[in-house]
């Protein structure tokens, strides 16, 4: 198939960027969106032009490295990652806009590559259980009901891609932070640090310049890991309770 692309090109973080038109020719329907860009890049290089820079690694939808806002939707029209988006989703001759994940907390580094270090910093602020190696009791010493384990797993499935932020009209990271807070709040292992965790993760999230949540649920719609917006409810509740406890000195 043949397609018209409008791709964001930007030489470096500080350079001006703009959309540039490219023609993608003879693209097999069964190839992935990234493989389509590979083909375009081969053509560009053959012509002596610089290839389009984009992030990717596993190409199987799990590492969360790939990004791209395609026709205005983070990761494009099927609710998976861009590497798992197949060209059969597009129509012959279609015009496709390809832009980076945009948010203040995700500055563009080059073309379609952005810096998502802000997500890591939110995790570093408290997205963990402090469990020194060697100190753990037997795995079965802490029973976890299947229901809770499943809920925790559902939230823990987040791949850290940042599509939620890119899709959110407010550039909010609530789904991402909510996923981690919910995962650990459901489990007995997460209890001792429960309040501390949510307080410092939200503090970091705010500091990074993410927006607030207006409950648009665009994040949930594009999330390739199908993290449900209910984790945001959970985050709201956890944060309010922890704040209250902290205010009265009980956290």
């Amino acid at each position: 198939m043949n397609l018209h692309l409008k791709v964001w090109r930007q030489k470096s973080a500080n350079a001006e960027g703009r959309l540039v038109d490219y023609e993608a020719r003879n693209i097999p329907e069964d190839c992935s969106f990234l493989e389509m860009l590979d083909i375009v890049n081969e053509d560009l290089q053959a012509k002596g032009d610089e290839p389009i820079a984009f992030d990717h690694d596993c190409r199987e939808g799990i590492c969360g490295t790939c990004s791209l806002t395609i026709n205005g939707i983070a990761h494009g029209p099927s609710a998976t990652t861009t590497c798992q988006l197949y060209m059969r989703k597009f129509k012959e001759g279609e015009t496709i806009y390809v832009e980076p994940f945009r948010a203040r907390a995700f500055p563009v580094m080059r073309d379609l590559v952005t810096d998502r270090g802000s997500l890591d910093r939110c995790q570093q602020a408290g997205g963990y259980v402090t469990a020194a190696v060697g100190s753990a009791p037997d795995g079965n010493a802490i029973p976890v009901s299947k229901g809770k384990a499943d809920l925790a797993m559902e939230a823990a499935a987040c791949i850290g891609c940042g599509a939620c932020v890119a899709a959110c009209p407010n550039g909010s990271a609530m789904l991402f932070v909510g996923a981690k807070v919910a995962h650990l709040a459901y489990l007995p292992q997460g209890q001792p640090e429960r309040d501390r965790r949510v307080l410092s993760m939200v503090r970091q999230m705010d500091k990074e310049g993410f927006g607030n949540c207006s409950n648009y649920y665009e994040c949930e719609a594009v999330c390739p890991a199908e993290i449900p917006a209910i984790v945001i409810t959970k985050l709201n509740r956890e944060y309010a309770v922890a704040s209250l406890k902290d205010t009265i000195g009980a956290a």
């Binding site: 806009y97 832009e99 945009r102 927006g211």
Partner: peptide, 12 residues
Amino acid sequence: ENRAARPERYQK
């Protein structure tokens, strides 16, 4: 604040 969280708009 929400506007500021996405200084550069999407073209589409």
